[in-house]
Simulated scan of single mutants.
Amino acid sequence: MALIPAQARSKTLRACLLCSLIQTPADWKKVGCPNCEEVLGLKSQPEKIAACTTTQFDGVVAVVDPDQSWVARWQRTAKYVRGMYAVRVMGRIPEEVEVALERRNIKYRPRDQTEMD
């Protein structure tokens, strides 16, 4: 497996604004978000992918065993699939997505480590 330089990474990999999972653009298009697909519907939706993911993120953690990982608990990813997660993502999901989450009784917590309004 080849390492991706940080500068190239920021232009190619994208992190989900809801769960912070990191994937390639091709993976976002092919499978959407394995954690959030039911609520975000990103698969094969380039506009939604652009709105609900970002290239702006800090730090990367590998979660191999989400149930046993203290890092996954700290990052609030313990119930998600194993994979690479951003420690912090910059940006927020679109307002209409946030409203849709509220309708489903899902509390949105921004992953940019700021307080919500």
Rank of each mutant, 00 (worst) to 15 (best):
E95I: 07
C16G: 08
I49K: 01
G91T: 00
L3W: 10
K43H: 00
K29P: 00
P5F: 05
I106D: 06
A2P: 12
V63F: 03
L101C: 08
V71G: 06
D112Y: 04
V81R: 09
V60L: 13
C33P: 08
A6D: 13
Q23I: 02
Q56N: 10
P34K: 08
M84L: 11
E37C: 06
A8D: 13
V39T: 07
G59L: 03
S69V: 05
M90E: 15
K43A: 05
V99I: 15
Q75W: 10
N35P: 07
R104H: 08
D58W: 05
R9Y: 01
P110L: 02
L18C: 10
P46Y: 00
R92F: 03
V39Y: 02
I22M: 04
L3E: 14
V89T: 12
L17R: 14
Q113W: 07
D112Q: 05
D27Y: 11
E115L: 12
W70T: 14
W74E: 15
T12V: 15
K79N: 15
P46D: 00
D27A: 15
P34T: 07
R9L: 11
L42W: 00
V97R: 04
R9W: 01
A15R: 09
P66I: 03
V71C: 13
V71K: 14
Y80S: 09
R109C: 09
G41A: 02
K107F: 08
G32S: 08
R92H: 13
Y85L: 06
F57L: 06
P46H: 06
A51C: 09
R109I: 12
T77H: 04
V81Q: 11
W74K: 14
V87E: 02
A86T: 12
P5M: 05
P25R: 02
E115T: 10
I93L: 15
M116Y: 06
R88T: 13
K48R: 15
E96K: 13
V64Q: 12
V64Y: 10
Q113R: 09
A62S: 14
G32T: 01
M116F: 05
A100K: 10
D27V: 04
K43L: 01
P94R: 06
R111S: 04
Q68S: 13
